[in-house]
Measured scan of single mutants.
Amino acid sequence: YWITCCPTCDVDINTWVPFYSTELNKPAMIYCSHGDGHWVHAQCMDLAERTLIHLSAGSNKYYCNEHVEIARALHTP
């Protein structure tokens, strides 16, 4: 949970406070499906809480801010 998930990541173990109602003692993470995949903080991706809950409940693929354009290009005929 205490990783630098992207170039603009500002989640710090020493200063972090809950942002989403689902967070208690660690930041919400979401899995990016690009390549071998990697974890990113939901807050760093500017996800709305409703979107985070929807993604967490389903089996939808998610692409982080850095990889979403690549994913779109691969799926565009």
Score class of each variant (00 low, 15 high):
A73Y: 08
A42P: 01
V40R: 01
H38N: 01
H34Q: 14
W39H: 07
W2N: 15
W2H: 08
G37H: 01
V68R: 07
D36L: 09
T76K: 14
L24I: 07
L52Q: 12
Y63M: 07
T51C: 11
M29I: 05
A28Y: 12
W2Q: 03
H54M: 09
E49G: 04
A48H: 05
R50L: 13
H38V: 01
C32K: 00
N65R: 14
E69V: 07
T22Q: 02
S33V: 07
Y1C: 13
A71V: 12
S33M: 08
C64V: 02
N25H: 15
D46F: 05
C44L: 01
V68I: 04
H75Y: 06
T15F: 14
N60G: 11
C32T: 00
C32F: 00
E69P: 15
A73K: 15
K61S: 08
N65A: 12
I3Y: 06
T76Y: 10
F19Y: 14
H54P: 12
P18R: 03
T8D: 04
I3W: 07
I53H: 09
M45W: 03
C44M: 00
C6L: 04
L47T: 09
C64R: 00
A28D: 04
E23K: 02
H41G: 00
L52F: 06
C32R: 00
E69I: 02
Q43L: 06
Q43G: 06
I70L: 13
I70Y: 14
K26S: 07
P7W: 05
K26A: 05
G58V: 07
D10R: 15
A48I: 13
N65C: 07
L47F: 07
E49A: 10
H75N: 14
Y31W: 06
T22M: 15
C64H: 00
T15G: 14
A48N: 04
F19G: 07
S56E: 14
P7R: 01
P18E: 04
L55H: 14
H41R: 01
S59C: 12
L47I: 08
E23C: 00
S56K: 13
V11T: 04
H67D: 03
I70S: 07
W2F: 13
L52M: 09
A71Y: 15
Q43T: 15
R72M: 09
E49C: 06
A71M: 08
Y62T: 07
L52D: 04
P27A: 01
G58H: 13
C32E: 00
R72S: 14
D46Q: 14
T4L: 10
S33A: 14
L47M: 14
K26G: 07
D12F: 05
G58M: 08
P27R: 00
Q43A: 03
A48M: 11
H54F: 02
C32H: 01
A42R: 03
W16T: 07
N65L: 12
Y62L: 04
Y62M: 06
D12T: 05
H41N: 07
W39P: 04
D10Y: 03
M29S: 15
K61G: 14
H67V: 03
L47C: 09
Y1V: 12
T8P: 07
Y62D: 02
A57T: 08
W2M: 05
A57H: 14
C32S: 01
Y31K: 13
F19V: 05
G35E: 14
Q43W: 02
F19C: 06
I70N: 07
H38Y: 02
W2T: 05
A42Q: 02
T51F: 08
D46G: 11
G58T: 06
Y1S: 09
D10S: 08
V68E: 03
D46V: 14
Q43E: 03
G58I: 12
W39V: 06
G35W: 04
R50Y: 08
T51L: 13
K26V: 09
I30V: 03
A71G: 10
E66A: 11
K61L: 15
R72T: 14
Y20M: 03
L55N: 10
S56H: 11
N60L: 12
D12R: 15
W39F: 09
Q43K: 15
V40W: 00
G58Q: 13
K26P: 01
H54A: 12
A28M: 05
C44H: 00
I13G: 06
Y20F: 07
L47Y: 02
T8R: 06
L55W: 09
T51K: 13
K61C: 09
C9R: 01
V40T: 03
Y62G: 02
I13W: 08
V68K: 08
T22S: 15
R50A: 15
A28V: 07
E66V: 09
C32N: 00
I70K: 07
G37C: 02
S33Y: 12
H54I: 07
C44I: 00
Q43P: 01
H67E: 04
W2I: 04
W16L: 03
L55V: 09
K61V: 14
H34N: 09
N14V: 07
I13L: 09
I13V: 03
A28R: 05
V11W: 06
Y31Q: 14
H54Q: 05
H34S: 11
H75E: 13
H54N: 10
C9Q: 06
L52E: 05
A71K: 05
C6M: 03
H67L: 01
K26Y: 03
T51P: 06
T8S: 15
D46I: 07
T4V: 08
E49R: 03
H38Q: 01
F19N: 15
N25R: 10
L47R: 03
H38K: 00
T15A: 03
T4A: 08
R72I: 08
C64D: 00
L52C: 07
W2Y: 14
A42G: 08
Y62C: 03
N65W: 13
